[in-house]
């Protein structure tokens, strides 16, 4: 059973690696479904990670940390909203700016606050989201395969992990089963149709961006107070952009987003494990090749070489009511 537990272990770390990407990807989904490009996922996540770690370190409460994360991330989403909805500015530029803002501000504030060169102090157990043992995990763990999967793979993650996975069906439900979802999908495709039906485009887009802010807040808090135990400089390390790639890959749909993020999670877990492993025929696969794979796949997909991924039609264009 050595191989089996190896696989379980790898899948377990895949899940952990997939969670922040998944949350950010869903955040991007709400935003882009509403017609607002969200390059700033990375920055919102980073800002949130810092806020969570800092507040958790100061107050000792992971929950207050999470609240701070959501507050910061949503605040950044509102800057994006003002720039792209009210001022009809370039949404991409605004997103790029937010990424740098987070990159600089987190270290700047952290540096003067904690005097640790931008990092935050290590968090104790209470100040983090600790693993949750699901009911009967220990008892069921004895059952081969099913029980082991339950105990080792499904049980034992922190709360945010479960929230992230729950967010997928919830998002799917909201998007396809509720009035809000219907309007959200419509506003990203044809805002004029919505406007002529007497519904405010601005309000809907603000709502979408707020939801995205909350989700990025969760993602950031997960990085610094769930998976990790402190904030460090640029700790998102491009996850926001992987999430963007996943969103394109999933064609802006929640359930495919889950699979894509899990796939990307597996890829990054594999990077660590495949180092130095010789494969028959191809020999050793460079770690960097696996690292680059999500990005390469996205480029290939965008170019229409394997299927087509078409963004919501109105994405990126400020809505201007015609005269």
């Amino acid at each position: 059973m050595n191989f089996f537990s190896d696989v379980i272990l790898m899948l377990d770390s895949s899940i952990r690696l997939a969670v922040p990407i998944l949350l950010a990807c869903l955040a991007g989904l709400y935003s882009e479904r509403s017609g607002i490009v969200d390059i700033g996922l990375e920055g919102k996540m980073l800002g949130a990670a810092f806020a969570a770690a800092a507040i958790a370190a100061v107050t000792g409460s992971a929950w207050l940390g999470l609240l701070a994360a959501i507050f910061v991330s949503s605040g950044m989403a509102m800057i994006h909203a003002i720039a792209s909805i009210n001022m009809r500015g370039n949404q991409i530029i605004s997103g790029v700016a937010l990424n740098f803002l987070a990159l600089g501000a987190t270290v700047f504030v952290g540096h003067s606050w904690f005097k640790r060169g931008g990092s935050t102090p290590n968090l104790g157990t209470d100040a983090r989201f600790s693993p949750i043992e699901l009911p009967f995990a220990e008892q069921l763990g004895g059952i081969p395969i099913v029980g082991e999967i339950y105990e080792q793979l499904i049980s034992g993650h922190n709360l945010i992990v479960y929230v992230a996975f729950l967010a997928v069906p919830v998002t799917a439900w909201v998007l396809f089963r509720t009035r809000f979802g219907l309007r959200l999908r419509a506003v990203g495709e044809n805002p004029t149709a919505l406007d002529t039906a007497g519904i405010s485009v601005t309000k809907l887009r603000y709502q979408a961006l707020i939801i995205g802010g909350i989700l990025c807040g969760l993602a950031g808090a997960y990085l610094s107070t769930g998976q990790g135990a402190s904030f460090s400089d640029n700790m998102t390390a491009g996850r926001g952009f992987i999430a963007l790639a996943a969103l394109i890959f999933a064609k802006w749909r929640p359930v495919p987003a889950l699979w894509t993020c899990l796939l990307f999670g597996v890829l990054s877990a594999a990077q660590i494990r495949l180092q130095g492993v010789e494969f028959p025929l191809i020999g050793e696969v460079p770690v960097q090749a696996i690292q680059a794979l999500p990005y390469i796949l996205t480029v290939v997909l965008l170019a229409g070489f394997i299927g087509r991924s078409v963004a919501p039609k109105a994405v990126g264009q400020p809505y201007i009511k015609e005269r």
Partner: peptide, 29 residues
């Protein structure tokens, strides 16, 4: 309108209820 105000990738039903949904859940409408 001369230029239709429809959401192209929506079903006919979805287009018809858009903006006149009648409740939070879509199933009923």
């Amino acid at each position: 309108h001369q230029h239709f105000m429809l959401v192209d990738n929506f079903t006919v039903l979805e287009n018809i209820i858009l903006g006149a949904e009648g409740g939070f859940l879509l199933a009923k409408s």
